[in-house]
């Protein structure tokens, strides 16, 4: 045994591999077939994604969006609060926070802030990653929604959103007392179909996001009232409207004002513009 060992000690891996007597033909045939199939599948997958995006545009009736006038925004956060009460949001879930930042050095300092709803991107990076098509972009008006009955709660879409617009509903409640009514009022989202908010039931355990107050649309897809944030905005900074309608307030603002969108370099094409 000892001699045997000595002989092999100097052996390198090359010898190990040269031992192999693979029937290369067979192996290559099988692996080649499987790899070729997967290659074709993945390429067609990428192309069909682009084609679908084009098709989507032709079916659109509206393109709802916002122009948020940062000159008029006073950082009162009424939009955040009204959104929370409109959707009966639990702690840990937020649809429209006001993001603040301090700039400069004393004494030349200033603060900058802007409300940040979901931007309902034209190319939403959160949509293709969903493994079960629970989140999708509505063909008729481009709003990106999450079906709480389909979402499996994998949270892949949260990682894919470059704007942090999505939050996971952990099932937290405002007051420890379970009898408190607020915790159980159904959210008007999806027509309130999920009913009373309970553990083990959606929307708990699913991902949630701003849906431009979809429940305020009538059957034709027109808004009967402004989304909660736009309606409450006391400085009239949040303008809401249809970008497909050239006469709408937002279209006019877009033409008149100097606007920006966040992270243009990612090609997401947000439908929310900030007027500077």
């Amino acid at each position: 045994m000892a001699e045997d060992k000595d002989v092999h000690n100097g052996e390198s891996l090359e010898n190990v591999f040269s031992e192999s007597i693979v029937s290369r033909k067979e192996f290559l045939k099988l692996t080649g077939l499987v790899s070729l199939g997967s290659l074709v599948a993945s390429f067609s997958n990428v192309f069909s994604k682009q084609v679908e995006a084009l098709e989507l545009n032709s079916q659109k009736k509206h393109r709802w969006g916002m122009v948020i006038d940062l000159v008029r925004c006073v950082n009162c956060k009424a939009c955040t609060v009204s959104c929370r009460s409109e959707h009966k949001l639990p702690p840990g879930v937020v649809y429209n926070p006001v993001v603040e930042e301090e700039l400069g050095e004393f004494p030349n300092v200033r603060r900058r802030w802007f409300p940040k709803p979901c931007f309902q991107c034209e190319q939403p990076p959160c949509v293709p990653v969903c493994p079960v098509t629970a989140t999708y972009k509505r063909k008729e008006d481009g709003i990106v929604v999450i079906d709480p009955h389909k979402c499996i709660g994998c949270r892949y879409c949260i990682t894919a959103c470059p704007y942090g617009a999505r939050s996971f509903d952990f099932g937290e409640e405002y007051i420890a007392d379970k009898g408190n009514d607020y915790n159980h009022i159904p959210s008007p989202e999806w027509g309130g179909v999920q009913g009373v908010r309970e553990h083990g039931k959606a929307p708990i355990g699913t991902v949630r996001k701003c849906d431009f107050c979809l429940h305020l649309q009538d059957e034709e897809g027109n808004y009967t009232d402004l989304p909660a944030c736009a309606k409450t905005c006391m400085g009239k900074a949040i303008h809401f409207g249809d970008f497909l309608d050239p006469e709408s307030e937002v279209s006019k603002l877009l033409a008149r004002r100097n606007t920006i969108r966040l992270k243009e370099e990612l090609g997401t094409q947000p439908n929310v513009y900030y007027a500077l």
């Binding site: 599948a41 997958n45 069909s48 994604k49 293709p128 990653v129 969903c130 493994p131 079960v132 098509t133 389909k150 979402c151 499996i152 709660g153 994998c154 949270r155 892949y156 996971f168 509903d169 959606a202 355990g205 699913t206 991902v207």
Partner: peptide, 17 residues
Amino acid sequence: GHMERAWRVLLTPNFHS
């Protein structure tokens, strides 16, 4: 988030994902 819905990935997959 919803363990009981895991089957959805097998039966209603989105192959863009």
